[in-house]
Write a protein that binds this DNA or RNA. Structure first.
Lengths: 205, 205
DNA sequence: TCTCCATTGCACACTGCTGTGCAATGTACA
DNA sequence: TGTACATTGCACAGCAGTGTGCAATGGAGA
């Protein structure tokens, strides 16, 4: 015994396994992003692996999707909590949120599609904490009179979040040029006046 | 021979058949609205008919969906063309459009979900004329400086249209109370200032 | 060298859907 | 009364996907 923990037990062995596992997850995100109905075989092929191997890492398709969702929630709540912690005005916080969330959330955009359908309930449950943080931010904006009140905060937050990705989808896959337009549009939907929205976004990407 | 045409040939026979056919279409809209992945069996049961009978009227599932879409396009373009014909300002026209389209489009909301997925291409093609009319209206608004220009008219029109139904979905199935909020939100997304939007909607439903 | 084990390749059973064929059955119409 | 036909009930073939079992294979570690 030359180690007292569990980490460096079989360095190359488990590393290779984790690489496979991570590759499957990464590729699954891409494949499902293009076609939410893609099967395990399709994902396996894209990952350069046999279908049987995928089942070795994820007992069922639901397990795979669940793992993907957990990953997404971890990353996205991290960003949102950070933005929420600042004492900036809610509309400025929203701009920062979209700017920082964009790259990660764009990868996980498939979860929006998967929310309706077979695994809808499971995904919805896991996304709960994120949804709450989002609603909190919008609520703060409504309390501070920077966001409109024509809809309750939880509905409005989901809507504005959806608008961001609706713009993304209608854009070239290379989402870069759309970030600015998406941010402005979501601000408008939140009830921020156009002049203020443009001023907030400034000359960002 | 007591008739010279083809219409009143078998009054009760064909009427009964058309009733069955229409009932299947109506019910299919409801069933697919709740679950876009519903099968032919599910639709048949809901229509009080055997699966085999549905295939008697519609050779394939795609035929059913296509018929549904054609129906929707006919009704919706009718409403939109009428609104477009008036010489009202574009934002006022949009309000009238949403108000008049709401009942019919709400029934056909499933087409938005079906647009992604197996029949996406077919539906998209049939919806083309409607999409163009919609883009024309938004373009008119942009030209007249009542709508924002942060997005091209075709993208913005789709987005605003989607917002209307996103609000509807997050509402009670009884969509009545949401019409006002949905109209206001879509106007905001189009870049109409909040005060103007509220003034336009007035004390409508 | 020998052992462990992730991966592979193939087999299989199961489910759920689509679309078709065909012989009843019942009802409107001549 | 008899015919036409929409509907039914059932059977069947096909397809696509899921999840499992099991014997090879091959590379990394003891």
């Amino acid at each position: 015994m030359c180690n007292n923990g569990v980490v460096p037990t079989e360095s190359s062995r488990v590393r290779s396994m984790n690489e496979t596992r991570d590759r499957i997850l990464d590729v699954a995100l891409d494949v499902l992003g293009e076609n939410p109905d893609a099967g395990m075989g399709e994902i396996a092929s894209a990952a350069g692996v046999v279908r049987r191997t995928v089942y070795g890492h994820f007992p069922s398709r639901l397990d795979l999707v669940r793992t993907l969702t957990e990953r997404a929630v971890t990353e996205m709540t991290g960003v949102l909590a950070e933005v929420n912690a600042s004492d900036a005005e809610a509309d400025a916080a929203w701009v920062a949120f979209v700017a920082r969330l964009w790259p990660v959330a764009h990868r996980y955009r498939v979860l929006l599609a998967l929310r309706r359908g077979e695994y809808g309930e499971a995904i919805h449950g896991l996304l709960g904490p994120f949804d709450e943080l989002l609603a909190d931010l919008v609520q703060r904006g409504q309390d501070g009179d920077v966001f409109a009140r024509h809809l309750p905060a939880d509905t409005l937050s989901q809507l504005a979040y959806g608008v961001v990705f609706a713009v993304a989808d209608s854009d070239l896959p290379n989402g870069a040029p759309g970030t600015r337009a998406a941010t402005i549009t979501s601000l408008l939907t939140l009830g921020v006046p156009e002049t203020r929205a443009i001023a907030l976004v400034g000359d960002q990407p």
